[in-house]
Design a protein around this nucleic acid. Structure first.
Lengths: 246, 246
DNA sequence: CCCACATTCTCAATCATTGAGAAGACGGTG
DNA sequence: CACCGTCTTCTCAATGATTGAGAATGTGGG
């Protein structure tokens, strides 16, 4: 059955590059015999691969199939050159996120080796109410989605994380007023995030571009260059897709 | 059955971001009813997603699961900062490839907007004998693999593409002698590629780092900076993996 | 309005999947 | 070297999900 394949692949959580069959069975709730058999079949297709010690990893074939037809390909291709320029200019972490359920999902990021701690990863998530990217995306989301988050539990990361519905409501209003989201110390006490919207040709907000910097960085002055970058990405997305290759 | 899922997902070729159910059925050789049903099930898991016009794309959930446990994650994380620096310095396309079957599979790339045409994409492939990255990887591959490629058909892209076993054999010897691969006009008449090896802690060649530039670029002078970059990446990979996050 | 095409639904025969338990492989330890 | 615990794979009969032809429904264009 199909759900078992999904459960097996999704058993790999953030930070798990390799798992044993037993561990996969435990996490997915499948019988080990079932897990073993499906893992073997997927391995034959190259969708999973096995280490010499029988540990299981995601296979190159699956990565390839998914990556070449990735749902965010257009966005990432349009964004990457601009993100690089931005990265060179501001010298801090740059990240690109989209809304996915009640989280922001980061689809691309550039790290600054000596810069501040940053918990995000490519394909990592953060709650919408807690991160600058998430708050920005939520501010431009349909109101029923906003209301669901506002009325839901608001997990706190630090003492400055938004934790009440009224705080969140006014924060969203402020984001819409200013056109960007600036959050200091909401995820980690020493870290400030600034996020701006990226719009598709129909002017809908489809992604957030953010700079993650230490609190004492001149974060506020980064808004202008961030906005310029987001305009450039929005413009690049309006052009037709790039030509096929091999 | 499991193979049907694989066939459906792998129906998405390079350049296909969205397909119709009928097209998926045609490419995968499945009955449309079967394709329709499996597509619907995968959609419920978020592994596929449907456009308003019923077109099918890869879903965010599948992208997320695969990307966060990607088999080349370590390599890419180690390589990206260095690739960016390199990109800033040389101002040409930079790409990172691994050997996968009889092709080189590109796992990361940085493009130079105004630079030369480049047919590669992330998750794109090129034959081992034709590209600088491929030739480099083949030169350090087990000899049985080399022999299989040497004796196999050698597809030609331009008149300068290697097309005979003896040409390939001597090209491989030269790569091993020099420690890098420089190919001018083998994929496209006006384009030169230069590739150098990236080694894992056990000193095995696991990837190729390449610069793609116009023929009149001073490609030869790029070898030194490329080698420096590859050493930096190799070194970065020896450190333990980065800590988990959310 | 009708036609062509794409998609989904229906349903009975089929055949792959399941999972308990056994057997085998592996690795560490006394 | 033999023992033991753990992980993995195998066996096999009962089960029930999967399959695909064809019908029905939905969709868009002329």
């Amino acid at each position: 059955m199909l759900s078992r394949v999904v459960r097996i692949v999704e058993a790999f959580g953030p930070g798990d590059t390799a798992l044993s069959v037993t561990e996969i069975a435990r996490r997915s709730g499948l019988h080990v015999a079932t897990a073993s058999r499906i893992v073997e079949e997927l391995t034959n297709f190259g969708w999973l691969q096995r280490h010499e010690d029988r540990q299981v990893r995601i296979g190159v074939k699956m990565w390839e199939a998914v990556s070449r037809a990735s749902p965010t390909l257009r966005l990432r291709e349009a964004a990457m050159p601009v993100m690089e320029d931005l990265h060179t200019i501001v010298g801090q972490h740059i990240q690109l996120g989209v809304m996915e359920g009640d989280d922001v999902l980061f689809v691309e990021r550039l790290t600054a080796p000596r810069a501040v701690i940053n918990y995000t990863r490519v394909a990592g998530r953060l709650p919408l109410h807690a991160s600058s990217s998430g708050l920005l995306l939520l501010a431009y989301a349909p109101s029923d989605h906003q209301e669901r988050i506002i009325s839901g539990p608001l997990e706190a990361f630090t003492e400055r994380t938004i934790r009440t519905p009224s705080q969140l409501r006014s924060a969203l209003a402020e984001v819409r007023l200013q056109g960007h989201a600036l959050l200091a110390g909401h995820i980690h006490a020493d870290v400030t995030g600034v996020a701006v919207p990226i719009r598709d040709p129909g002017d809908r907000v489809v992604a957030a571009l953010a700079v993650i910097a230490p609190n004492d960085d001149v974060a506020r002055s980064r808004v202008a260059v961030l906005l310029a970058a987001s305009k450039a990405i929005s413009r690049a997305m309006t052009y037709p897709a790039s030509p096929p290759f091999k």
